[in-house]
Every structure is written in C-alpha cells, then in structure tokens.
Design a protein around this nucleic acid. Structure first.
Lengths: 195, 195
DNA sequence: GAATTTGGTTGACATGGTGTAAAGTTGACA
DNA sequence: TGTCAACTTTACACCATGTCAACCAAATTC
C-alpha cells in the first residue's frame, strides 16, 4: 500500500476532500478523484484498497489537518458545566461545516459498506463522548434536569448536535452558522438544565 | 406500466415494504423483491419503471394503508397550541417506526437519484407543514418563545422530529418508543414555548 | 372458434461503477 | 549496470440497474 507519507497519497486525500466539499449532487467516483489528482485510476488503488477506505482516510486526514482534538479541548477548561456545554457546542458546531462534504459521502456508503459503517460509528462515538463529558460536568454542578438520566441527556445532546441535524437546519432551514450555534446552545440549555 | 390497481402490483409493494422493514444491512435489490414476490425480475419493471419509482410508490402505498392523514388530523382539533404540539408529536412520532424501513432506503438513494431526492423532500415538506401549523397555534396562544421567529421554531421542530433523529435516539440511544415521545414532547415544549 | 389483449416468462445484452491482474515505463539510487 | 518504487496502460471479472425481443397462456371479444 506504499509508504504512509507519500506525496501522492497526500495529494489524493486533498483532492478527495476538495471534490467532496464542492459536492454537487453527483457522487464522487474513483475515476473523478484520479483525474483531478492527475494520476491514473489504478494509482489510487496503489494507495487505498477501496473507496470506503479512501473516504475513511480522508476523514482522518481532515481531523489531523484541522486539529479537531485541540479545538474540542478548549471546552474542557471551562469553569462551569454550563460554560462547558456552550463551549463544546461552539467548537463542534463550527467543526461540522469543515467536514460536511466528507461526512456526507461516508454516510451515503453506510448502507452498502461495513467498513464505512464502523468508521462513521467511531466518529459519532467520539462526539457522543464529548457530550457525555459535558453532561457529567453539568451534573456535577447540580445543573442537570431531574427529568433526564445522564444517559438520556447525553443521547439527546448528541442527536441535537448530529451532522444531519446541522445539515437540515443550515441547508433546508437556511440558518446562518452563528445563528445555528446560538440556537443550539439555547436549545441544549433549555432541554438539559434544571430550571 | 399496467393498471394502477393490479393484484401483482400490490403484491410487489407489500413485498418491498416487508423486505425494507426487516432491513438487514444489505440493500434490497430488484431481484430480491422479484424473488420474494414470486415473479421474475423483469415483471417488476412491468409495473414500476425504476427502483426509485418503486420505492416512492411504496411510501405512497404505506401512507394510504396506514392512513397518515387521518392520524395527523387528530392534532388539529386540539384546544390549545400546547396540546396541539403534543398531539402532533405523538401522531407523527408513532408513525415514524412504521415507515422507517422504506424511508431509510429512500434516503440512501438521495445521493444518486434525483426522483428519490424530490420524493423525500416532498415528504419532509409535509412534516414541516404540520410543524408550521403547530407553531402557528402556539403563537396564537402567545405561547411561542420570544427568542425564536415562527420560521425558526418551525425549522427547529421539524428537525427535532426528523426520522434521522428518531433513528439515532431509538437505535443508538436505545430509547423506547413511549420514552421517545415523552422526551420529544418535553424538549419541544421547553425549546419552543415562552416560560 | 379464432383473434387479440393482458400479464407474465426466459434469455441476452448495454451501461456504469468497483476492484483485480499483468506487463510495460521511467527515474532515482547504489 | 542493475534494481526498486511509483506509476501507466490495458484488460477483465463482478454486480446491479435497466432495455429488448421473442415467446406463452388465460381471459375477453368479435
């Protein structure tokens, strides 16, 4: 599968990302990626065993380039549970648009490809984990609503912050990104916190 | 495309529905549908021009058989806006599980098929319309939160009640159906209504 | 009773995407 | 000079959708 840090490999990942990002309605095919990268279709398979693996590698590449970890880290240092919740929503919410194109392609592959399913689940588990931590912080402050178990609060928050939700509100609803952040923070606060 | 009310046509729709409902991870192919119906693959094309059209027809068939309209109608007669909101969430929320299999297949086709995209959009617009009415009822009571425009409240409610959201909470979160309804009613109330 | 229509059947085939395989090219490096 | 790695070209297997054509049998109609 060639060296992990090949120049071409990186170019393929970049191209894949760009193509998915500028995602028209048509699917991005292996041949599209190859052509845009300026190599043969076969050469793509020299670096990635399948389309699913390429998509998965692209999400990982993005996480690395965009440094998700550092960005989500910020929320951990918040003083109160409530601030932490706000910070987390802001950090994650602002990360979504940067990976949406790739995420969408990965979701589309879920039905047909097991590896894609697992990769997507892993990703969502990571978000869920962040939500869990935010809920735990709320709870520690005694700010968590009595109507919900910690588990339920986590589930609710995670689904509120899901990429599908973001897409629907931004694309169909036409919400601006700042408005999305504001209203999500508001909704989360109202539905998770004790009055 | 043969007569609209053929016996075989109905059998195909029933089979498609059953197969999608019992949806394992594998996609339901035209040949699967044909075999399960007990006819040849070609015969399916005698009734439906394409897989997308078959899926679309299946959703329509379900709407008819399950009588969505009547079920959603119930919420219209509610006395207050709040009751109406609750009733709508209950009616729609309990309809979701009955159409989920088909909905999922239709969503999966969105990326590749224009007709599927339009069909899905129509469906979602119908839900949105119901949400709009519920929000209008709230507003008339003066119960709508001042933080949200009617438009925003509608968007928020529609995305809260989206099928993806339901799937995530039920499948990943493991929420029971009654719990889903209860917590969605609670979340909607808290995030849409004035205090 | 013969002809036609309806709703199927079988089999072959085009199309379009993924993924595999094999042989050839090119440039760097030892 | 030889070898290795990255890439190219060409060909092909596989699989799902959708099309086409010829044929068949039962019911309907003239």
């Amino acid at each position: 599968m060639s060296s992990e840090n090949s120049e071409t490999r990186k170019k393929i990942l970049e191209t894949t990302w760009k193509l998915l990002e500028s995602g028209g309605p048509s699917a991005v095919r292996m041949s599209d990626i190859a052509r845009s990268t300026g190599i043969s279709r076969q050469a793509v398979y020299l670096h990635f065993p399948s389309r699913a693996e390429l998509l998965i590698a692209t999400t990982r590449y993005l996480d690395e380039v965009k440094d998700v970890d550092a960005r989500l880290e910020a929320s951990r240092s918040a003083a109160s549970g409530l601030e932490r919740l706000d910070a987390y929503i802001e950090a994650w919410g602002n990360y979504i648009p940067e990976v949406y194109g790739v995420a969408r392609a990965l979701v589309a592959m879920q039905e047909t490809d097991e590896a894609a399913r697992v990769a997507w689940k892993d990703r969502m588990d990571a978000v869920r984990h962040g939500c869990e931590a935010a809920v735990a912080a709320l709870r520690k402050d005694g700010a968590l609503s009595k109507d919900l178990t910690a588990r339920e609060a986590t589930d609710l928050l995670a689904s509120l912050l899901s990429i599908e939700q973001w897409a629907q509100l931004r694309e169909h609803g036409g919400w601006s990104q700042p408005r999305y952040i504001t209203l999500m923070q508001r909704t989360a606060r109202l539905s998770l916190c004790a009055k």
